[in-house]
Every structure is written in C-alpha cells, then in structure tokens.
Amino acid sequence: MERTPGPAGLTGLAVRDAVVRYGATRRRPGSVAVDGVSLDVAAGEIVALLGPSGCGKSSLLRAVAGLEPLAGGSVAFDGEDLAGVPVHRRGFGLLFQDGQLFPHRDVGRNVAYGLEAQGVPRAERAARVAELLADVGLAGYAGRSVATLSGGEKQRVALARALAPRPRLLLLDEPLSALDRRLRERLAVDVRDTLKATGTTAVFVTHDHDEAFTVADRVAVMDAGRLLQVAAPDVLLRAPAGPRVAEFLGLAPGADELVRTDREQVGLRDEDGVGTTTG
C-alpha cells in the first residue's frame, strides 16, 4: 500500500484507501478486488494503471467513475468528496475496451450524446462534433453508421464522444486491447496527443507496458488489488520497486533487452551493471 502524494496537492483526482469488493452478500464478505489503493492524479496529468488481468485495475477505474460502490476509502476531485454523487453528475468520462457506441445512432449523434445531455444548442453541438472528429482523424464521418466502422475507427469515435462534454477526468479502460498490434501502437500515440492537446486529466488502464509507457506521464503498477509502485516510466525501468514489478515490466534479472518507444530509447542494465542509456 503505497501512498504517493501527487505533484499538485489538492487539485485533480485524489483516491484514498479505496476498497472494492465483489460478490458480497449478507452471508459472506466476497472477494476483494481493490485492497486499499491510494492514488493522486494532478490536473492535466495522464496516469497509467498497469497490471496483469484480474489485478483489480478495471474495478478501481469503475469505482472512481461511480459504477461500483466503494467498500471503503474515498474518492475526491478538486478537494470535493464524491461519495453519494451519482455517475452522471461526476463529470468523468469513461472509454470502454469495445467502445460501446450507441448502435441506433450514427457517428455524429454518438459524439453529440454528451452535449445533448448538457443541453448544448444544436449549432454549437454540430460545430463541436466536427471539431472533435477532426481531432481524432475522422473528419467527415459524422453521417456514417457505426456498424460500418473498423475497430480502430470505433475507438476513435468513442474517444471523440468521451471528450465532447469536456470531462474533468477521462477514464480509459483498456481501450486499445481489442485492436491488433500495429494499430495499437499507432493509436497509443494518437491518444496521448489528443489528451495532451485538450489538456484532459486521464487515467489509462492497460496490461501492456509498452502502451503504458507511450501514453502516460506516470505509471502505477498494480497487482492483486494493491499498488506496487507509481513513478515515471524511466524511473520504473531504472529502479523497479521489487521483483514482482520487474517481472511484470519484462525486466527479468539478467536479460539483455532493449525497449523502444517512439520517443525514448531506454536501455537495460545487465548483470555487470554496464548499460547504455540514451535519454
């Protein structure tokens, strides 16, 4: 249970000792999915939640969104506790792994959904939809049916839809996991660019460390319901906080490996302690 004070203190997301349970009834307590996690995300920051399947990262995300009840702990944003605030009033966007586009609406009306809920007038809605579709590289798709889109296109539309109502926090639940590798790599860059361009605070859940390193400013490694380490990608690679973290990052001791991303080349220390690092 690591307490990591966020760089900006009170603004942004503040999760304290969150506990989420599954399958609890009156007779049995159920199993624990999230076991006392504390995490801070500063305004404008992108934090990745990295961990293997079943470690509780999606449950934590859903708890932050308000879709799962907290069995303990608290979630606050900009200093205000969100206990009792229903999902539709939190101002948090959520992007699912399979997009969850509304099948009965076309692309434009999907993106406009959040704006309709906010009561934005039609002309303004149309302008914003066009702007967002251009941002995600799907200019002119507004009239298309969602059934004709490819997987990557669907996720872009979902991203545009989530961003349209200007959420104060965007939660992304393994949005790229259903796509093939090459697409994933390309979209990871695009997602980060879009988020940074719009200045959106985001929590990005993934089980792929390449993706986490590409998208996020900081990476929180999670396993079995607990946070193992939260740090910037280069810090993680240089100083993994334990054998479990190292294992998960693919940093098995004694292996020579080069991990490349578009922007950083990070080298790995071999047993002799000699390595090449380029910053």
């Binding site: 879709l67 229903p86 539709h88 009033r89 966007g93 959520l94 969850q100 809920a117 989530a162």
Partner: peptide, 26 residues
Amino acid sequence: DPRLREAAATLGAAPGRVLRTVDGPL
C-alpha cells in the same frame, strides 16, 4: 449491454435520459 447504459451515464445522462435515449430506441 449494461455498459451501454454506463457509457451514457458517464456522458452526463441522468437515469431518465438513459431510459429515453438508450433503452427506448433499442
């Protein structure tokens, strides 16, 4: 899919609006 309703909720739709715009048309 219940997640469709969840998606609608995270986009700011109150439960009544979710019923109207998701359950209704589908």
